[in-house]
Design a binder for these strands. Structure first.
Length: 583
RNA sequence: GCGACACUAGCUCAGUUGGAUAGAGCGUCGGCCUCCGAAGCCGAAGGUCGCAGGUUCGAAUCCUGCGUGUCGCGCCA
């Protein structure tokens, strides 16, 4: 389908060619939604330097030359040189009609589909997912869904912490516990890890065994690998349980943990050394990407082989980015990782560039995010000062949401069948997930945010439940219409009332909002859009009766309602949030 | 010491990449259910966009300096 902006932009091209000649025809008309009209063009202001015209005169010339009789009721120059466009209702109606017929709801496919690798979630083996993993998991998943929706090939990568020195103590602890560990000993992973750590710190004997075990593991000793595999499998099982419950699309097959790169570490170091990028320094082998200065102005190293000959995370990260670019064929590599790692990641990219792995159009991007804070303004912790397990967080969400849904269900009016116990539980779960995810996604991700059940579960304001409510209320009308035998298909849409026009224009902005997220990797832009759509719809809902309207208006409004339901459900879906029929 | 990020209404946050009178929500105050789900809608009050310079027709947005806070800066990830 064509968008309003496309149609207008084409007319501006022609007008610019007419006024200033073909060389300016391609200039961006800078079309924006406006408080003073439906759209405004800022083109005349931006052209001042190129044409010499003062913006008001230029705007007048362009407006005069603009062939817009079929699109606009009025085109006027205003302020310092804005061109205000008041669209004809018939034009808006025509385009929103096309939107209704478009299965993609105006979300254009990417002109150039890419292979995009998204590194997100990335928990550690033998530790449970906790609140610290929430943001990466939720944001990464929303981005994965959104990029897929515009036609990119998305490769999820769960960069599990499944290798390295901690596994010495974990395996020895597993051996100490003996048989039957699969069903009991590892069940509480946090406790398992804590106990292993305690022994490691407390017993030199145990610590020595652990160190020897690490050597066996890295040497590929079969019995050791078997034990390691048991830990990995058990951990993955708990990850899967959390992902399922939270509605995360990461699957077992997406696991690409540190162990995957074990065999590539030595070749990676060799390649970097051969290329002259890595040098010996203080007994270690390091890359010093230019432009990074630390204490006392000394260059900051990426240590790719430690003094003791071992490899650290820098080597793994380099092997991983090489794998993603070369083996997976990515042209876009996205890291959904906390903001504190910004410098480290930049150094990795720089090194990958110098090594000739990361070359345009391929690029690597850090989707940085801030911390989840408790109500005390510090990092979210449980009462006992430990990290909050995601599973427990999700349970609390379900409990709180169930109380909320139950309370609202009791207030239901006549003719509105109460929800069954099963429906209540399902709705509560959907609401809880919406609350948690939306709170995480709706603000600029680089800032910290305070985790507050009261705020995220609020039924008014910019929250997940508010959007779900708008959708559910909307679906209620459609159910009633269907029960009356009214058709939602192929209705001729008209936009007469201002609320209808506002709703139509809001619906038409969906594709743009989705592509904003694709470009910026900032899901909150879609949230802001959806909240605006839901608000606009709520106003329409209050002012424009649907089922009680005259047949022609009723059919048109029903089509708008149906379209709104689709956009809300689709938009929430891109964020990983369900839109229940009833709640 | 060097660097990154943040700072917008009492609180929580937007601000379409330099455009018109800086917008929402919460909270406060005041209206709206004989009418499609009031988990809603409408209205009011509320601002030195951290501070100071600069760039230009125009700056919350770009540049410089400063302040406050958070986080990094060699063998953890």
């Amino acid at each position: 389908m064509t968008t309003i902006q496309q149609v207008l932009a084409e007319r501006f091209d022609r007008a610019l060619a007419k006024v200033y000649g073909p060389e300016l025809a391609g200039a961006d008309p800078l079309l924006r939604r406006s408080d003073h009209a439906d759209f405004q063009s800022n083109i005349a202001l931006s052209l001042k330097k190129r044409t010499g015209d003062n913006p008001r005169d230029g705007a007048a010339k362009i407006a005069q030359a603009l062939d817009s009789a079929d699109l606009c009721d009025r085109v006027e120059v205003s302020g310092p040189g804005f061109i205000n466009l008041h669209l004809k209702a018939s034009f808006v109606a025509d385009v929103v009609g096309q939107l209704g017929a478009d299965p993609r709801l105006g979300v254009a496919l990417a002109a150039r589909p890419e292979t995009v690798v998204i590194d997100y979630s990335s928990p550690n083996i033998a530790k449970e997912l906790h609140a610290g993993h929430l943001r990466s998991t939720v944001i990464g998943d929303a981005l994965a869904r959104t990029l897929e929706a515009v036609g990119h090939r998305v490769v999820r990568q769960n960069h599990l912490g499944d290798w390295g020195t901690p596994f010495g103590m974990l395996i020895e602890h597993l051996l100490d516990l003996g048989e039957g560990v699969g069903d009991k000993g590892v069940a509480d992973l946090n406790e398992f890890y804590r106990a292993a750590r305690e022994k490691f710190d407390g017993s030199p004997d145990f610590a020595e065994r652990a160190r020897r075990r690490v050597v066996l593991l890295q040497g590929g000793d079969a019995p050791t690998l078997e034990l390691w595999q048991r830990l990995v499998d058990e951990s993955k099982r708990t990850f899967r349980a959390v992902y399922d419950r939270l509605g995360i699309t990461m699957r077992d097959g997406d696991a690409a943990g540190e162990s995957l790169f074990n065999s590539r570490l030595e070749p990676t170091v060799r390649e970097l050394t051969d290329k002259g990028l890595a040098v010996e320094s203080e007994g270690a082998i390091c890359v010093f990407p230019p432009g990074f200065k630390g204490k006392e102005g000394k260059p900051v190293p990426l240590i790719i082989r430690k003094q003791d000959g071992g490899y650290g995370y820098a080597t793994t990260d380099l092997a991983a980015i090489r794998y993603r670019l070369h083996d997976l064929g990515a042209t876009r590599v996205i890291y959904v990782v906390g903001a504190p790692q910004a410098q480290h990641l930049t150094m990795v990219y720089k090194t990958a560039e110098l090594a000739g792995w990361l070359v345009p159009p391929a690029r690597a991007e850090h989707v940085a995010f801030g911390s989840v804070l408790g109500e005390d303004g510090k990092m979210l912790k449980s009462r006992t000062g430990e990290s909050v397990k995601l599973m427990e967080l999700l349970q609390e969400g379900d409990d709180r949401a169930l109380a909320l849904v139950r309370e609202k269900n009791a207030e239901r009016g006549e003719g509105d069948e109460p929800l069954s116990e099963g429906e209540l539980a399902a709705a509560a779960h959907a609401v809880a997930i919406a609350a948690i995810k939306y709170a995480d996604l709706s603000a600029d991700r680089v800032k910290d945010y305070v985790f507050s059940w009261a705020r995220m579960l609020a039924t008014i304001g910019n929250t997940g439940p508010y959007l779900q409510y708008a959708h559910a209320r909307n679906r209620s009308i459609l159910r009633k219409a269907a029960a009356q035998g009214l058709s939602l298909e192929a209705a001729h849409i008209t936009v007469e009332a201002p609320e209808e026009r506002a709703l139509a224009l809001a619906l038409l902005s969906f594709g743009g909002a989705v592509h904003d997220v694709v470009a910026s990797l900032e899901p909150h832009r879609l949230c802001t859009y959806l909240y605006d759509l839901a608000s606009t719809y709520s106003t329409f809902y209050a002012k424009c009766p649907v089922l009680k309207a005259e047949p022609a208006a009723r059919a048109s409004r029903l089509a708008l309602v149906a379209l709104t339901a689709r956009v809300l459900a689709q938009g929430l879906g891109l964020l990983g949030i369900e839109a229940p029929e009833r709640m």
